[in-house]
Structures are given as C-alpha cells and as structure tokens.
C-alpha cells in the first residue's frame, strides 16, 4: 500500500541544473505544461474561426471569457479592465490545473503550497503596488476604519494591517488545502476499496464516485474563489473601501 501522500511527490523527469540552481522538469512541470497546451487549445484553436454563430469549443471559450469579464466588471468596475487578462489567466491556469488533477495518475500542481503561495504573493504584491501607484501615501488610509472612536483606532489599525498581510496566506492555503484534502481523501477511500475486497469494497467505491463529483465541483469552485478574491483585493486597492 502506498501512502496517501505519495501522490504529491515531486518527481524529476528531466534534470536541469544551472550552476547549482535546480530547474528540473518535474511531474508538476509536465502538468503545468499540459495545462498551458490544453488552455491554448480551447482558447486559441477554439477561437480560430471567429464565427459569428459559435461552435461548441468557441462557445466554451466565450463562456469562460464572459464569466471572468463579468466578474471583473461587477467587482472592480471599469478600472479593472486593464487587469482582466491577468485575472483571466490566473483563473484558467488554476481551473485547468485543478481539473486535470482529477485525471487518474495525473498530478495536481496546485496541491503544493509553494505554487499557490507564489501565485498569492504575486497577487498580493501586485495589488499593493497598484494601491500605492494610484493613491500614494493616501493608500494607508485603507487601514484606518471610518467612524470609530479615536481610542479604538490604534487597535483597529493593527487588526486591519494584520488581516491585510494574512491575505496571501489565506488565499494560498485555501486552494492548497482543498486540493490536498480532496486528493488525500480519494486515495484513502481508494485504499479502503482494495482492503475491503469484493464483498465490502462497494461502499467506499460508491463514496469515491460521489466524492469525485464533489472534487470536480471544488476544482472549479477554488479557481473561482481565487479569481474573485483577487478581484476584491484589486477593488480595495483601486477604490480604497471595504
């Protein structure tokens, strides 16, 4: 029996070492590349005809575009248009990584905290830079809640600052933990199926089927949550209100 954690192991498929810096092509890299290739297939090949009446693949591409465009419009407003390509890429990348991770024997790059934290950190730093670029030092007013007694202000500012710096952690842990927990559960119950054999294995098997459906939902939902939280952080930086 393999450990439920074994599925998360990084395996180096191609060793690349640049002066002591390890840039090996791993199973994680492979599925990131597959993600990029498939996303390109849907969104570039699907749009190749640019038909006025879309076909199946083009409908999917347009649906994804309009989904995120609507999200950015509703949550950030017109100033968010500039950042739409980044949020769109972020959503599609996470969505494809998550969903492809549901394919048996595949690997889920988003089940590693270092990957999700890197993405969250890029969002966090980018949003903070946008906030300072737009408002200068006035951006600090974001941490001072309006309409509270002067006595409470220092405490509330402290809380606001902490919650601001917690953002990249919560954003990355949410995605990573969901992926980790889902895949671990599937593996554990898969082990039960084998252990309980032909007689008792049906119950955990049925559970796995249901869980697979739930995991597909979560794969989508976590990509959605990551994208919408990015929109909300961006909105805070641009409009300076909660």
């Amino acid at each position: 029996m393999h450990s439920p954690m074994e599925q998360f192991e990084i395996k180096r498929l191609l060793h690349l070492n640049f002066g002591g810096f390890d840039a090996s092509f791993t199973n994680s890299s492979l599925w990131m590349v597959i993600t990029v290739v498939l996303a390109t297939g849907v969104f570039v090949m699907g749009m190749r005809q640019r038909a006025l009446v879309p076909g199946r693949l083009q409908s999917v591409a347009e649906l994804g575009y309009e989904f995120i465009a609507g999200m950015v419009r509703d949550n950030v407003g017109d100033q968010g248009k500039k950042y739409f390509p980044f949020i769109f890429t972020l959503f599609i990348f996470i969505l494809f990584c998550n969903v492809l991770g549901m394919v048996p024997y595949s690997f889920t790059p988003t089940s590693h905290i270092v990957v999700t934290f890197a993405m969250a950190l890029v969002v966090f730093i980018g949003v903070t830079v946008i906030g300072f670029a737009r408002h200068g030092l006035h951006f600090f007013s974001f941490f001072v809640p309006k309409g509270v007694p002067a006595v409470l202000v220092p405490l509330l500012v402290l809380i606001e600052v902490i919650s601001y710096f917690i953002r990249p952690v919560s954003l990355s842990v949410r995605l990573f933990a969901n992926m980790l927990a889902g895949h671990t559960m599937l593996k554990v119950f898969g082990g039960f199926v084998v252990a309980m054999g032909l007689i008792g294995g049906w119950a955990p098997l049925a559970f796995i089927v249901a869980l697979t459906g739930l995991e597909l939902l979560i794969a989508f939902l976590q990509a959605y949550v990551f994208a919408i939280l990015t929109c909300l952080y961006l909105n805070d930086a641009i409009h300076l209100h909660h």
Partner: peptide, 10 residues
C-alpha cells in the same frame, strides 16, 4: 523547480 516552471508556464 516548481517555482521556475510555474513562472514559465504562467
């Protein structure tokens, strides 16, 4: 390696 390839892929 994960970060390098995340950057490349993204």
């Amino acid at each position: 390696p994960q970060l390098v390839w995340l950057a490349i892929a993204f």
